Simulated scan of single mutants.
Amino acid sequence: MQISAKADYAVRALLELARAPARPLTCEAIASSQEIPFRFLKSVVGELRRAGLVRSQRGCEGGYWLGRPAAEITLLDVVLAVDGEVLSLRGEPLAGLGYPGPAGGLPGVWRRIEADAKDVLGALTLAALLPAAATGPAGAQPRTRIGAV
């Protein structure tokens, strides 16, 4: 199992944006704060923008904001936005996977692992990963609050 660099960087960038939702952040500021390569982050943020997870404004007062409240963005949303799949086998989706003979049950195991991963990722919001003081406006409660994963 492997979590892609794109997914890791995307979540880290979104957590930076969620920490200070009232002001825009530049890619340079996010990259510096999270020690992420700027050029790679720029392409990841573009994918997040196309998925509606961030919004942007050009100009000297511009930057990026979350596209939705942190309590409404799950880690599953992020992974699907940048990777398209939660789990794949040799780069292919698991949906049509089948093996002959004694390995015939193995695709079901892979699909079960994918389903479990989707359950975990879908239950965790950005707000749940932030310290309590940084969850945003009063009343915005995360679906799941965790200390450490």
Rank of each mutant, 00 (worst) to 15 (best):
M1D: 13
M1I: 09
Q2D: 04
I3R: 07
K6W: 10
A7I: 01
V11H: 08
R12Q: 05
L15F: 04
A18T: 04
R19C: 09
R23N: 15
L25I: 07
I30V: 11
S32P: 00
E35S: 12
P37M: 08
P37V: 06
P37T: 07
R39Q: 00
R39V: 00
L41N: 01
S43E: 05
V44G: 02
G46W: 09
V54R: 04
S56M: 04
Q57A: 13
R58L: 10
G59V: 12
C60D: 14
G62N: 04
Y64D: 00
L66H: 01
E72Q: 11
I73T: 12
I73C: 09
L76Y: 01
V78I: 13
L80V: 13
A81D: 05
G84D: 07
E85V: 01
L87D: 02
L87H: 02
L87V: 09
L94D: 02
G96R: 14
P100A: 07
P100W: 07
V109N: 08
V109S: 10
W110Q: 09
R112V: 05
E114T: 00
A115S: 14
A115E: 06
A115K: 08
D116A: 12
K118R: 15
D119H: 11
D119S: 14
V120L: 15
G122N: 05
A123W: 08
L124D: 01
L124G: 02
L124C: 09
A128L: 08
L130C: 03
A133V: 01
T135E: 15
T135P: 07
G136S: 14
A138R: 07
A138Y: 05
G139F: 12
G139V: 12
Q141T: 12
R145H: 07
R145M: 13
I146V: 11
I146H: 06
V149S: 09
